[in-house]
Design a protein around this nucleic acid. Structure first.
Lengths: 198, 198
DNA sequence: GTCTATATTGCGATAGAC
DNA sequence: GTCTATCGCAATATAGAC
């Protein structure tokens, strides 16, 4: 690992735990084991480091999106319930991945005061809904799901799961019964499929 | 208005716009028109000021919760759709109220690094779901709503609306088509009622 | 690429006069 | 309750030797 990568990693941990503004370059360098002046050989400023984290997070999100072709294949091979339950498992898995969950925390904390973070959240939300809507559309075309506006169905299902997902992450942080949120996610999924699956 | 109230108001504006840590007592006092030393005649520390904001926010949330008796009356007088649509209007109204929306922003930003903020969010989420579940239970008892586990139905509906509500606030902040989220909220409400209202 | 040393600014908080 | 003055410290960032 290069020094730049270690800076990135340690900064992410500290930003996630204490927030960007409350974390000093001194804190980060102390964790890395270098002097503050060395920091500037790797990042132009503290702000550029935050931007690098945002960019890395956004790229990770974009790379996870399923293509139209992949969705076409999956909606043929699996039932609606199988596909949604599998989606839930992947979604919740974020909170078992330290780097991914730290990035979520940092972006979530910054979203109201940093427009880059804000737009990452807005775009991710929109992308998630549109991919779900397209999935529902494919299931409907294949006669595996009841008819109805795919976008509204996606809004109902996907936004509900999104809230529960955020709840899970927050509760996990404070050791406040996150498993209840995971159970609710599965129950919502079952309820939804019982009503719309064919 | 007392000086203490003006400090509270100006601090809330600055915390919401720039975050708690990035806002200095100097910034606040400059807005209020007093010297920093005078600040300490009203609040023991910057942290105590933040606590006061949290407490005020939590009290406002608690005071808005409808009692069992009120819910019993409302579920008799109104249809499911009327009641949910009215709930949406009140919910979205938060973003038209500067103080309320500023408090939401501050608590949202702090939720991952300040346990008081974190527990306010966790509790608010739980309270909202439980009140909705009880409302559905009453509608079911009165034969105005299809049977089904009220808690799971509340999770599906209320968490979906919650996400859309947060989306609205964030999009409004960045002038990024918030009305689309409001339309989605109404569509989700209609879809839900079309399926579960009797 | 790392270090020592330093510049400059801003921070939260306090003492004590009025 | 407000002010002036100040303390002690930590912040980001830079210069220049090795």
């Amino acid at each position: 690992m290069t020094t730049k990568e270690i800076i990135f990693e340690k900064a992410l941990i500290l930003f996630a735990a204490n927030g960007y503004t409350a974390t000093s370059i001194r804190n980060i360098c102390s964790e890395v084991g270098i002097k503050e002046s060395s920091f500037y050989n790797h990042y132009k400023s503290k702000d550029m480091l935050l931007d690098a984290i945002f960019e890395s997070f956004n790229n990770a999100l974009l790379s996870k999106a399923l293509s139209d072709e992949q969705l076409d294949l999956l909606t043929t091979q699996f039932t609606l319930k199988e596909m949604l339950l599998n989606g839930l498992k992947q979604y919740i898995g974020i909170w078992e991945n330290p780097t991914a969950s730290q990035m979520w925390f940092v972006v979530s904390m910054e979203q109201y005061r940093n427009s880059k973070a804000g737009h990452i959240v807005i775009d991710e939300s929109k992308r998630r809904i549109l991919r779900t809507a397209y999935t529902f559309e494919l299931f409907q075309k294949k006669g595996k799901m009841k008819q109805g506006d795919p976008l509204t169905l996606a809004n109902l299902y996907s936004f509900s799961i999104r809230s529960l997902h955020l709840d899970y992450g927050l509760k996990k942080l404070y050791n406040n019964d996150p498993e209840q949120s995971w159970k609710s996610m599965q129950e919502v999924c079952n309820l939804f499929c019982n009503h719309w699956e064919l």
